[in-house]
Design a protein around this nucleic acid. Structure first.
Length: 417
RNA sequence: GUGGAUAUAGCUCAGUUGGUCAGAGCGCCAGAUUGUGGCUCUGGAGGCCGUGGGUUCGAGUCCCAUUAUCCACCCCA
């Protein structure tokens, strides 16, 4: 127990963490270019926020939240996703009082009590963006374009962008009831889950993975056929914007986001070959959410991707990562008397900005060289009794094996930069 | 929450139908005549064979439970 991490969590250790840093760097670059600014919210919130913001009927709220009472008897929940917190922060910090829209992004850990499997963990990491205070097809397309740009820069290929429209509070209820009419005659034949969904959330029956349900739902009315004129026009505009950018998409009428807050655009990005959990990101418009959280009627759209899944996909596709860390210089002592001189030289090299290191385990010269080789040091600088007397050092190129004795001030001339 | 598979040194794994079965490779540490890495050779450290019961004269090797991991369902990132 003492040496075992909690189920579904992961250590990201040196060698691995560099990949994460690389991905995060790419993400932050894209955010800068697109005008999104970072927001950091607490990893835990009042439970009520997620119940409201994510939806009482969702699996997340019903069975996946890490909820506990703190010492003040408040119900606290580790965030299962990012949108609710961002909306809360938008309201609490009066970001709606500034210029609109507000374009935000976040990167950080999320928590869901789920059974772990490939690409799914109890603590996982998401990058997400939220745009509050804008309702236009252009911004919807921008969010999707930005997501695709992140994937592109990371070198991911063969991704599919699925899009759909969920309508608005005007046309959704009509669609909902026509769906129910369609399902009602053969309701008993659906899986228990879908029967349960029938009243609470008939839209979700559309993306049930159960074969039988899929067959039964085959001829179901499509939301796209039930959209009101304004919603239909908006969806066309979104598609037109994507086309202008040359972004391929697949209209997927079975793509749904279950909650009432979700409106209009919904999208999801799929990757093959990373296991059953093939979604590497998804998002959509939520024009009802801010109001549901106690604010004024404010349009919003967001998107999130899972860093673990991105990493899986990158590794599966054989994407090259930047080379790992290595010292520029490794300072070696050829005699115990040289210890202080070596220690001081090390400090000087670091002051000059070199990635420099030395041995601290009292190793022999040979072992120090071996160690430097293991660390993949570019150069070694050796100081022994001779060099102490002469005020010099031996600089050795660890790739060519060449070495020469020079005065210590000239070391930068040899090793460059 | 449901189902399947797996659990032997830091890592990847061997261990036959229960009776020297506690091993190999890699990694780690140290040497190969006294100031030098990457190749080679030699040696060393390191395992309560996931944990707890049971069967047996005797169990990594069979049975049960438990925990963890992996994969899938559900759902999602």
């Amino acid at each position: 127990m003492l040496t075992t991490k909690p189920r579904g969590t992961n250590d990201i250790i040196p060698g691995e963490v560099e990949k994460w840093q690389y991905i995060e760097d790419v993400i932050r670059d894209v955010c800068r270019i697109y005008g999104y600014r970072e927001i950091r919210t607490p990893v835990f919130e009042h439970t009520e926020l997620f119940k409201r913001g994510v939806g009482e009927t969702t699996d997340i709220v019903e069975k996946e939240m890490y909820t506990f009472k703190d010492r003040g008897d408040r119900s606290i929940t580790l965030r299962p996703e990012g949108t609710a917190s961002v909306v809360r922060a938008y309201l609490e910090n009066n970001l709606h009082a500034g210029p609109q829209p507000v374009k935000l992004y976040y990167i950080g850990p999320m928590f869901r009590y789920d059974r772990p499997q490939a690409g799914r963990y109890r603590q996982f990491h998401q990058f997400g963006v939220e745009v509050l205070g804008a309702h236009s097809a252009g911004i919807d397309a921008e969010v999707m374009a930005m997501a695709m740009e992140v994937y592109r820069r990371l070198g991911l290929k063969d991704l599919e962008l699925h899009i759909n429209s969920l309508g608005c509070p005007e046309c959704r209820p009509k669609f909902r009831s026509s769906l129910q009419e369609f399902f009602r005659p053969r309701l008993e034949e659906f899986c228990p889950t879908c029967q349960d969904r029938f009243e609470r959330n008939p839209l979700r029956i559309l993306d049930c993975k159960n074969k039988k349900c899929r067959q039964l739902a085959a001829g179901a009315p499509a939301i796209l056929d039930c959209l009101c004129d304004r919603c239909a026009a908006f969806f066309e505009e979104v598609k037109r914007h994507l086309e202008e950018l040359g972004i391929d998409y697949i209209v997927d009428k079975n793509l749904v986001r279950g909650l009432d807050y979700y409106t209009h655009t919904a999208f999801e990005v799929m990757a093959k070959g990373i296991g059953a959990q093939s979604s590497v990101g998804g998002g959509g418009r939520y024009n009802g959410l801010v109001e549901a959280c106690g604010g004024k009627d404010t349009p919003g759209i967001g998107y999130a991707l899972g860093l673990e899944r991105i990493l899986l996909a990158m590794e599966q596709q054989g994407v090259e990562f930047p080379p790992p860390w290595r010292p520029d210089v490794f300072v070696v002592t050829a005699s115990p008397q040289a210890e202080y001189a070596a220690f001081k030289l090390l400090a000087e090299l670091r002051n000059l900005g070199y990635r420099a290191d030395k041995d601290y385990n009292g190793r022999s010269l040979k072992a120090q060289m071996k160690y430097a080789g293991k660390l993949n040091a570019r150069y070694t600088v050796i100081i022994g009794e001779n060099e102490l007397e002469n005020g010099t050092a031996v600089v050795k190129d660890m790739i060519t094996g060449e070495q020469r004795e020079i005065t210590r001030e000239k070391i930068p001339e040899i090793i460059g930069r």
